[in-house]
């Protein structure tokens, strides 16, 4: 039967076509997700945790990863994607080796994040939402990073940079290959 056809008899299924590799969750991923499931009243309540776990591991959530999560949590891919696309920091497209979050909220705005952005644009040759061609950085705008007393602020992966001046960027970027 072609895939496009609605099979209304649930029990009559083909045996599951499990493919190894990236289309299935790893043992380690499952173990982590299982733990999250144990903390909530029903399986699908762990979906955000599962997305985080998979993204932690794979840097972003591909369609295949999304399907794997859906299967594991007994959800439809649409339901998982509905949640995944709501949140800013679940990446449904590939990101570079380092994700750079530039705060563009009001205190940083007052303190010059616009100049910082221009400077980053020049240095990296990309705009918000894009990844450098060498796949090194993905540059994203971010809401207030909560260090308004040290604005402007910038986060690269897990590292927070405060009071950043355009001329300091060179030195900062050096740490990320």
């Amino acid at each position: 039967m072609s895939q496009n056809k609605a099979d209304t008899n649930a029990s009559i299924q083909q045996p599951s076509s499990a493919k190894p590799g990236g289309t299935e969750l790893s043992v380690a991923e499952r173990a982590l997700i299982d733990h999250e499931i144990s903390l909530v009243p029903y399986r699908k309540a762990a979906v955000i945790e599962a997305l985080k776990i998979v993204q932690q591991n794979r840097r972003w959530v591909s369609d295949e990863s999304l399907d794997a999560i859906a299967r594991y949590l007994d959800m439809n891919a649409a339901e998982v994607d509905s949640v995944a696309t709501f949140y800013n920091l679940i990446f449904r497209r590939p990101v570079g080796r380092h994700v750079m979050l530039l705060c563009d909220s009001v205190s940083c705005y007052i303190m010059g994040c616009t100049e910082l952005y221009r400077s980053l644009q020049q240095r990296l040759g990309i705009e918000f939402g894009h990844t450098t061609s060498d796949n090194r950085f993905t540059l994203l705008p971010n809401c207030c990073l909560g260090c308004c007393d040290h604005a402007p602020a910038l986060m690269i992966d897990d590292d927070l940079y405060r009071d950043v001046k355009p001329m300091e960027l060179e030195g900062i970027l050096k740490h990320y290959e």
């Binding site: 439809n76 509905s82 696309t85 709501f86």
Partner: peptide, 9 residues
Amino acid sequence: GEDLNVYAA
């Protein structure tokens, strides 16, 4: 049904 949903924000 499960295959229709809302996406993004």
